[in-house]
Protein backbone atom coordinates (compact mmCIF):
# COMPACT_ATOMS: atom_id res chain seq x y z
CA UNK A 1 0.00 0.00 0.00
CA UNK A 2 1.55 3.28 -1.09
CA UNK A 3 0.62 5.82 1.52
CA UNK A 4 1.70 8.80 -0.50
CA UNK A 5 3.50 10.62 2.31
CA UNK A 6 5.53 13.66 1.33
CA UNK A 7 8.47 12.71 3.50
CA UNK A 8 10.26 9.64 2.04
CA UNK A 9 11.63 8.86 5.49
CA UNK A 10 8.09 8.63 6.89
CA UNK A 11 7.05 6.53 3.89
CA UNK A 12 9.84 4.11 4.64
CA UNK A 13 9.27 4.10 8.39
CA UNK A 14 5.62 3.16 8.06
CA UNK A 15 5.87 0.82 5.08
CA UNK A 16 3.50 -2.11 5.10
CA UNK A 17 5.18 -5.01 6.92
CA UNK A 18 2.40 -7.51 6.44
CA UNK A 19 2.95 -10.44 4.23
CA UNK A 20 -0.30 -10.97 2.46
CA UNK A 21 -0.03 -14.39 0.90
CA UNK A 22 2.38 -17.24 0.38
CA UNK A 23 4.07 -15.13 -2.27
CA UNK A 24 5.69 -17.49 -4.65
CA UNK A 25 4.92 -21.24 -4.66
CA UNK A 26 7.36 -21.71 -7.51
CA UNK A 27 10.15 -20.65 -5.19
CA UNK A 28 9.24 -23.42 -2.73
CA UNK A 29 9.22 -25.99 -5.51
CA UNK A 30 12.55 -24.84 -6.92
CA UNK A 31 14.23 -24.91 -3.54
CA UNK A 32 12.90 -28.43 -2.94
CA UNK A 33 13.98 -29.56 -6.39
CA UNK A 34 17.53 -28.25 -6.20
CA UNK A 35 17.99 -29.16 -2.56
CA UNK A 36 16.33 -32.58 -2.96
CA UNK A 37 14.56 -32.19 0.38
CA UNK A 38 10.97 -31.73 1.58
CA UNK A 39 11.11 -28.22 2.98
CA UNK A 40 7.32 -27.98 3.22
CA UNK A 41 7.25 -30.59 6.01
CA UNK A 42 8.99 -28.25 8.46
CA UNK A 43 7.08 -27.73 11.71
CA UNK A 44 9.42 -24.97 12.94
CA UNK A 45 10.64 -26.82 16.01
CA UNK A 46 13.95 -24.90 16.02
CA UNK A 47 16.21 -27.94 16.42
CA UNK A 48 18.19 -26.70 13.43
CA UNK A 49 18.91 -23.25 14.83
CA UNK A 50 19.58 -24.86 18.21
CA UNK A 51 22.34 -26.90 16.56
CA UNK A 52 23.83 -24.09 14.48
CA UNK A 53 27.34 -22.74 15.20
CA UNK A 54 26.64 -19.46 13.41
CA UNK A 55 23.40 -18.63 15.23
CA UNK A 56 24.86 -17.64 18.62
CA UNK A 57 27.22 -15.15 16.96
CA UNK A 58 25.05 -13.47 14.35
CA UNK A 59 21.49 -12.83 13.27
CA UNK A 60 21.55 -15.92 11.05
CA UNK A 61 18.59 -18.24 11.76
CA UNK A 62 18.39 -21.34 9.60
CA UNK A 63 14.84 -22.00 10.83
CA UNK A 64 13.71 -18.65 9.41
CA UNK A 65 15.27 -19.41 6.05
CA UNK A 66 13.35 -22.68 5.89
CA UNK A 67 10.18 -20.80 6.83
CA UNK A 68 10.80 -18.38 4.00
CA UNK A 69 11.32 -21.25 1.58
CA UNK A 70 8.03 -22.84 2.69
CA UNK A 71 6.04 -19.60 2.50
CA UNK A 72 7.54 -18.62 -0.84
CA UNK A 73 9.18 -15.46 0.48
CA UNK A 74 11.81 -15.40 -2.24
CA UNK A 75 12.99 -11.82 -2.00
CA UNK A 76 13.43 -11.91 1.78
CA UNK A 77 15.39 -15.15 1.53
CA UNK A 78 17.71 -14.37 -1.35
CA UNK A 79 18.55 -10.76 -0.42
CA UNK A 80 19.36 -11.52 3.23
CA UNK A 81 23.16 -11.45 3.60
CA UNK A 82 22.88 -13.98 6.45
CA UNK A 83 22.28 -16.59 3.74
CA UNK A 84 26.07 -16.74 3.36
CA UNK A 85 26.87 -17.43 7.03
CA UNK A 86 26.04 -21.13 6.92
CA UNK A 87 29.24 -23.17 7.32
CA UNK A 88 27.47 -26.30 5.96
CA UNK A 89 28.37 -28.22 9.09
CA UNK A 90 25.20 -30.37 8.61
CA UNK A 91 24.40 -30.58 12.33
CA UNK A 92 20.89 -29.32 11.61
CA UNK A 93 20.36 -31.93 8.90
CA UNK A 94 21.52 -34.67 11.24
CA UNK A 95 19.07 -33.71 13.97
CA UNK A 96 15.99 -32.50 12.06
CA UNK A 97 13.10 -34.68 13.35
CA UNK A 98 11.19 -34.31 10.10
CA UNK A 99 14.10 -35.65 8.04
CA UNK A 100 14.60 -32.37 6.18
CA UNK A 101 18.07 -31.15 5.14
CA UNK A 102 18.07 -27.44 6.04
CA UNK A 103 21.69 -27.15 4.84
CA UNK A 104 20.64 -28.25 1.39
CA UNK A 105 17.85 -25.67 1.47
CA UNK A 106 20.51 -23.01 2.06
CA UNK A 107 22.62 -24.36 -0.79
CA UNK A 108 19.60 -24.35 -3.09
CA UNK A 109 18.83 -20.76 -2.13
CA UNK A 110 22.43 -19.79 -2.76
CA UNK A 111 22.17 -21.35 -6.24
CA UNK A 112 19.00 -19.32 -6.85
CA UNK A 113 20.62 -16.15 -5.53
CA UNK A 114 23.44 -16.65 -8.00
CA UNK A 115 20.83 -16.56 -10.75
CA UNK A 116 19.83 -13.12 -9.44
CA UNK A 117 23.55 -12.17 -9.53
CA UNK A 118 23.61 -12.19 -5.73
CA UNK A 119 26.79 -13.91 -4.57
CA UNK A 120 29.78 -12.80 -2.46
CA UNK A 121 32.92 -12.13 -4.44
CA UNK A 122 35.02 -14.82 -2.75
CA UNK A 123 32.88 -17.55 -4.30
CA UNK A 124 33.38 -16.12 -7.76
CA UNK A 125 37.11 -15.83 -7.25
CA UNK A 126 37.23 -19.51 -6.31
CA UNK A 127 35.37 -20.36 -9.50
CA UNK A 128 37.84 -18.38 -11.58
CA UNK A 129 40.76 -20.16 -9.94
CA UNK A 130 39.25 -23.58 -10.56
CA UNK A 131 38.57 -22.63 -14.16
CA UNK A 132 42.09 -21.42 -14.86
CA UNK A 133 44.13 -23.87 -12.75
CA UNK A 134 41.82 -26.70 -11.79
CA UNK A 135 42.33 -25.87 -8.11
CA UNK A 136 40.42 -23.64 -5.69
CA UNK A 137 43.69 -23.21 -3.78
CA UNK A 138 46.43 -23.37 -6.41
CA UNK A 139 50.14 -24.12 -5.96
CA UNK A 140 52.71 -21.37 -5.34
CA UNK A 141 56.49 -21.09 -5.41
CA UNK A 142 57.04 -21.39 -1.66
CA UNK A 143 55.06 -24.59 -1.76
CA UNK A 144 56.84 -25.91 -4.85
CA UNK A 145 60.17 -25.51 -3.13
CA UNK A 146 58.83 -27.27 -0.04
CA UNK A 147 57.50 -30.15 -2.14
CA UNK A 148 60.83 -30.68 -3.82
CA UNK A 149 62.56 -30.68 -0.43
CA UNK A 150 60.17 -33.42 0.64
CA UNK A 151 61.06 -35.53 -2.33
CA UNK A 152 57.78 -34.92 -4.10
CA UNK A 153 57.43 -33.45 -7.57
CA UNK A 154 57.05 -29.68 -7.58
CA UNK A 155 53.60 -30.09 -9.08
CA UNK A 156 51.15 -32.61 -7.65
CA UNK A 157 49.65 -35.30 -9.88
CA UNK A 158 46.69 -33.08 -10.62
CA UNK A 159 45.82 -30.61 -13.36
CA UNK A 160 48.90 -28.73 -12.18
CA UNK A 161 51.15 -31.44 -13.55
CA UNK A 162 48.83 -32.37 -16.39
CA UNK A 163 47.31 -29.14 -17.71
CA UNK A 164 45.96 -31.09 -20.67
CA UNK A 165 43.03 -32.01 -18.42
CA UNK A 166 42.05 -28.36 -18.04
CA UNK A 167 40.12 -27.95 -21.30
CA UNK A 168 37.85 -30.80 -20.25
CA UNK A 169 37.13 -29.09 -16.95
CA UNK A 170 36.55 -25.79 -18.66
CA UNK A 171 34.13 -27.39 -21.07
CA UNK A 172 32.08 -28.75 -18.19
CA UNK A 173 32.01 -25.38 -16.46
CA UNK A 174 31.20 -23.62 -19.74
CA UNK A 175 28.22 -25.92 -20.28
CA UNK A 176 26.66 -24.19 -17.31
CA UNK A 177 28.06 -20.74 -18.25
CA UNK A 178 29.59 -20.60 -14.81
CA UNK A 179 32.78 -18.71 -15.65
CA UNK A 180 30.94 -16.34 -17.93
CA UNK A 181 28.52 -15.34 -15.22
CA UNK A 182 31.22 -15.21 -12.55
CA UNK A 183 33.37 -12.89 -14.67
CA UNK A 184 30.42 -10.67 -15.47
CA UNK A 185 29.32 -10.30 -11.89
CA UNK A 186 32.83 -9.64 -10.65
CA UNK A 187 33.42 -6.97 -13.25
CA UNK A 188 30.13 -5.29 -12.50
CA UNK A 189 31.38 -4.93 -8.96
CA UNK A 190 28.20 -6.36 -7.53
CA UNK A 191 27.99 -8.44 -4.39
Amino acid sequence: MAKGYNDPAMEKKFQDRYYHAADNPEFTKEVERIGRTMAHMCYQCGTCTGSCPSAPRSSYRIRKFVRRAVMGLEREALTDPDLWLCTTCYSCTDRCPRGIAPTDIIMAMRNLAFKWDIVPRNFLKTIQLIYTTGHGVPNNDVNRAARVKLGLDAEPETTHKYPEFLPGIQKIMDHYKMKENADRILSEGEH
Binding site: Q44, C45, G46, T47, C48, T49, G50, S51, C52, A55, P56, R61, R63, K64
Partner: peptide, 13 residues
Protein backbone atom coordinates in the same frame (compact mmCIF):
# COMPACT_ATOMS: atom_id res chain seq x y z
CA UNK B 1 20.76 -27.71 26.99
CA UNK B 2 20.95 -26.29 23.45
CA UNK B 3 17.80 -25.18 21.66
CA UNK B 4 16.32 -22.17 19.95
CA UNK B 5 13.71 -20.03 21.66
CA UNK B 6 11.73 -19.83 18.43
CA UNK B 7 9.35 -17.26 19.86
CA UNK B 8 12.27 -14.88 20.40
CA UNK B 9 14.33 -16.20 17.51
CA UNK B 10 17.30 -16.58 19.81
CA UNK B 11 19.58 -19.59 20.34
CA UNK B 12 19.62 -20.92 23.89
CA UNK B 13 22.43 -22.55 25.87
Amino acid sequence: VYAEDTLLGQPVD
